[in-house]
């Protein structure tokens, strides 16, 4: 069943002379519960695609259906409500609130998400039970990213969006974080979309989407995705 459908979606930056078509009439369908990897060179439009899907930005043209509802036209509070309940974001730079403790950073979402999960349990699952009362600056990058994963999952959204989640980590830590992300998504039955440069990750994906120059080059379902243990890191 399709959970996401882009119909002729365009996102144009600038106006008149300096127009940049970050996305150019994109059509794309993503299935529920799948693991989707988006690949493409820098500047291809990957982040733009993810931001539109996450409700951080609105398309210049076209429709984006999420669970049958068009979010392209949403603004203000309606869009905030969509972000709060339907999507969870994991960024390259964690984006934690420096003045809140680990636990508070996660518990924060209880104020906005209706079906939020228990923050402490989420933090236990990402292995941070011992760091509940520490502040982000006291954690390593990998730990901070794990807090950010716990926060995204705690909202209990349908879709998890991750924009180069390991971009700021060394490769070893990056792999650990990715593995964690995938197993958590699987356990909770989430649709997960990851933008990455890591070819190995792509081997594990149910679907690989290739983007270039604002267009979808290909969208291939992989018959036999590898399990984490089978991949050579």
């Amino acid at each position: 069943m399709a959970i996401v459908e882009f119909r002729n979606v365009s996102r144009v930056y600038g106006n008149g002379e300096y127009e940049v078509k970050a996305l150019d009439s994109v059509n794309l369908t993503l299935e529920e519960g799948k693991f989707i990897v988006i690949l493409g060179p820098s500047g291809a439009g990957k982040s733009t695609l993810l931001n539109l899907l996450g409700g951080l930005d609105s398309p210049t043209d076209g429709q984006i259906f999420v669970e049958g509802r068009d979010i392209a036209g949403l603004t203000g509070d309606a869009l905030a409500e969509y972000r709060a309940s339907s999507v969870g974001f994991v960024f390259q730079f964690y984006n934690l609130i420096p003045t809140l403790t680990v636990k508070e950073n996660v518990a924060l979402v209880k104020e906005i998400a209706r079906d939020a999960l228990d923050p402490e349990r989420m933090l236990a699952e990402v292995g941070l039970s011992d760091h509940l009362n520490q502040f982000p600056a006291q954690l390593s990058g990998g730990e901070q990213q794990r807090v950010s994963i716990a926060r995204a999952l705690c909202k209990n959204p349908k879709i998890l969006l991750c924009d180069e989640p390991t971009g700021a980590l060394d490769s070893e830590t990056g792999v650990l974080v990715l593995k964690l992300l995938l197993s958590m998504a699987k356990n909770y039955g989430k649709t997960i979309v990851i933008v990455t440069h890591n070819q190995n990750i792509a081997k594990m994906a149910d679907t690989v989407v290739r983007v270039k120059n604002g267009k979808i080059r290909s969208c291939e379902a992989q018959e036999h995705p590898l399990a984490a243990e089978e991949v050579e890191w």
Binding site: A84, S85, I112
Partner: peptide, 16 residues
């Protein structure tokens, strides 16, 4: 700014 943007991404409303 960054913290506010983060809250907004999480789904906090402008009024909140």
């Amino acid at each position: 700014y960054r913290e506010l943007a983060t809250l907004k991404v999480l789904g906090f409303r402008d009024r909140q």
